[in-house]
């Protein structure tokens, strides 16, 4: 016999396969009823339905938004979800900001937004290790922004984080 959580997920997945909009009711309860990973599984059952993913994100609480942001790169969305990543970068929640700079954000954010996002991480004490593919996206302008920030810190007599020092 299956665990109740597995049972819940086994019944939820076909509902989303049959009607993507069924996810609106299932997704908020998915982690507490379907166990860890249930939200990711439900998102997979949407097969890249970006309109539903958008409205799910907009209606989501922090946990739901985090689950969406961290799964975006697996959802066959091309660039359609970059607005969600930009939304997350406007918040003051370090979990959302870090997730926004995961593999999807790194792949699709334009240079300006990406650099601003990285700088925001530094301001929020999010380790730069959280930024996906930073080596590939790192450029002279980002180096200049980080150097200026380091100069500001030194002028204020405050320590420059090690991961910033390594980049400048």
């Amino acid at each position: 016999m299956k665990e109740p959580a597995q049972e819940w997920l086994a019944q939820a997945l076909p509902q989303v396969e049959a009607d993507p909009h069924a996810i609106h009711r299932l997704f908020p309860q998915a982690e507490r009823r379907g166990g860890p990973g249930a939200r990711r599984a439900l998102l997979g059952a949407l097969h890249g339905h970006h309109a539903v993913i958008h409205s799910l994100y907009e209606a989501g609480d922090s946990g739901e938004r985090l689950a969406i942001l961290t799964a975006l790169h697996e959802l066959d969305l091309e660039g359609t979800a970059v607005g969600l990543v930009e939304d997350a970068l406007r918040t003051n929640d370090a979990r959302l900001v870090a997730a926004a700079l995961g593999p999807y954000g790194s792949a699709w954010l334009d240079d300006h937004s990406f650099r601003q996002g990285v700088l925001k991480c530094v301001f929020m004490s999010i380790p730069l290790a959280a930024v996906a593919e930073l080596d590939r996206r790192f450029d002279a302008e980002l180096a200049r922004m980080l150097s200026d920030y380091a100069a500001e810190l030194r002028a204020a007599g405050r320590p420059v984080p090690r991961d910033v020092l390594e980049r400048i």
């Binding site: 370090a94 929020m124 004490s125």
Partner: peptide, 24 residues
């Protein structure tokens, strides 16, 4: 409610958030 979650460490928030709200 079945939803009261007091398990996750009440002594700290997300690791890198430290003790103050960071202003991005």
């Amino acid at each position: 409610s079945g939803r009261l979650d007091l398990a996750a460490g009440s002594e700290a928030g997300p690791d890198y958030a430290g003790n103050t709200i960071k202003r991005g």
